[in-house]
């Protein structure tokens, strides 16, 4: 269903049409092509921090979520070289935090984990940092497990741009970067966060978890048990146009 009136770029040798102004990942997603990503979400402005969507556009490395598609642009995406880099980036994320999948209720529905499966990450490779990141279970309906945070700031964006609440922010710098919440006590119960917020459902990993609903789907039936993340492009259909 290629619209002949649209300009196209070439992603891994396939022609992908785009509307001017679209980023590479938007164009690819609309065409059902998978570009691995973590911090990008179709409903929110591009962030460009995880770098998992790094592609080679006309020979230059760049994040597909921040590069505007141009007619005739040649893009390398799922090459050995790029998937190698993605695997290393994922390994860095895994050792930076505490990602113990067997005891995480997000397991099977986790974008970090699914992306790591997709690029064949068999081990975290690096030495683990094992940071000390206490859990915040103070809220009646929601649990915050910071051990799994990958600093994608999707919750920051959702709370600010959709919920209008600004519950979350990143503070600290460098490897000491960490998620904070909008209260003097530093605890989520002292904010006006609610389980109905968009920010409560946008976390791609297992940091923001609704209480009393964990492990509802048995192993085998979870989102990425059914099919790999690369086969689910468009499964999270955009609910609104990006600003």
């Amino acid at each position: 269903m290629t619209d002949n009136t649209l300009p196209t770029c070439l992603i891994d040798g396939e022609e992908v049409p785009f509307t001017p102004g679209q980023t590479l990942i938007q164009a690819a997603t609309a065409a059902g092509k998978y570009i691995p990503h973590l911090c990008w979400h179709p409903d929110f402005a591009a962030h460009g921090s995880c770098k998992i969507c790094t592609v080679k556009a006309d020979g230059r490395f760049g994040a597909a979520c921040t590069i505007e598609a141009r007619a005739g642009m040649t893009v390398e995406n799922r090459t050995t070289e790029l998937d190698d880099k993605r695997r290393t980036l994922l390994q860095l994320l895994f050792v930076e935090g505490n990602h113990f999948c067997p005891s995480c209720e997000k397991s099977g529905n986790c974008l970090l984990q699914a992306t790591a499966y997709e690029v064949g990450m068999m081990s975290p490779h690096f030495d683990h940092f094992y940071p000390d990141r206490p859990v915040d279970a103070s809220h009646p309906d929601v649990l915050l497990d910071f051990n799994r945070c990958i600093m994608c700031e999707l919750c920051v964006r959702a709370s600010r741009d959709v919920d209008g609440k600004n519950i979350f922010a990143l503070s600290g710098r460098g490897i000491k970067s960490h998620l904070i919440v909008n209260s003097e006590s530093g605890r989520i119960k002292d904010t006006d966060f609610s389980a109905g917020d968009r920010a409560a459902e946008v976390c791609p990993v297992g940091v923001i978890l609704k209480k009393r609903v964990g492990f509802a789907v048995p192993i085998g039936g979870r989102k990425y048990d059914v099919s790999p993340v690369s086969a689910q492009v468009g499964a999270q259909a955009p609910t609104r146009e990006e600003a």
């Binding site: 980036l89 990143l170 710098r173 490897i175």
Partner: peptide, 10 residues
Amino acid sequence: SCGFCTPCRV
């Protein structure tokens, strides 16, 4: 490192 992007932060 400002900590924004994965490759530099970690």
